[in-house]
């Protein structure tokens, strides 16, 4: 279980408060207007940013001050997920060993992940030779290899077309089913939330609300969300 305990983030005029928990294995979307602090909150959970106050706990363990790689989470960024000078297999291998000294078992895991995301035959390609959708698949394969209990997605599909995005969300859904990891996904599109996240955190007006039922939230949006959705 991921717990944000009285977390406060202040940066100049910016302010965000969060106090809620996410059940293990849950799939939660974070939506809200841009600038409200969705990605900032994700940064705090991922360990890139220290909260001004409060604690972050994963399965009861205080991870607030731990470095990003030791917190038990894997993250996919909006861009720059892949190192352009490495092949697909190497980029995925980084998830197994960040110094890339892979043993036979590591290589098997990588091969399995490549197969799982449907990139068999692309092992030796470099990111520049891949389409946008294939690049996302590589990043997801690495998440698979990392085997972390918490997966964070920071709008990695924002640049994809609608059909491709649907496909990727479907893939994420399947991968989460297989691994049982907890998913936290930032999005500015409520349709994403509706597609794979039964629960949604609304980030607006300096607050991240506790997760609530996505369908209910979108069917009867509170004023802040209504303003954002424009409906």
């Amino acid at each position: 279980m991921l717990t944000l305990e009285a977390v406060e983030i202040r940066q100049g005029a910016f302010h965000l408060a969060a106090d809620f928990s996410v059940e293990t294995g849950a799939r939660v979307a974070m939506i809200g207007p841009s600038g409200a602090g969705k990605s900032t909150l994700l940064d705090v959970i991922a360990g890139f940013l220290q909260p001004t106050a409060g604690r972050v706990l994963l399965d009861g363990l205080d991870i607030t001050a731990l470095p990003p790689a030791q917190r038990g989470c894997a993250i996919v960024f909006q861009d720059n997920n892949l190192l352009p000078h490495f092949t697909v297999a190497q980029n995925i291998g980084l998830g197994a060993r960040p110094d890339l000294r892979l043993d036979r078992a590591d290589r098997q895991r990588v091969a399995h992940a490549i197969e799982r995301v449907g990139l068999t035959g692309f092992e030796a390609r470099k990111p520049g030779q891949l389409s946008g959708g294939q690049q996302v698949r590589v990043a997801l394969a690495r998440v698979l290899v990392q085997r972390q209990p918490l997966v964070l997605l920071d709008e990695p599909f924002a640049a994809l077309g609608p059909a491709l995005k649907t496909e990727m969300l479907g893939l994420v859904d399947e991968l989460m089913d297989e691994t049982g990891a907890t998913l936290l996904m930032v999005s500015h599109d409520p349709a994403d939330a509706r597609r794979i996240a039964p629960r949604t955190v609304l980030v607006a007006d300096g607050r991240a609300e506790p997760p609530c039922d996505t369908g209910a939230l979108l069917a009867d949006p509170p004023p802040a969300l209504r303003r954002y959705l424009g409906s």
Binding site: A46, F48, P67, A69, A74, L94, D99
Partner: peptide
């Protein structure tokens, strides 16, 4: 940030 999230050490960052 990618290097951080993967847990690369300083030497690996330089090399990789």
């Amino acid at each position: 940030r990618l290097a951080d999230s993967l847990g690369m050490r300083a030497r690996d960052r330089l090399r990789l």
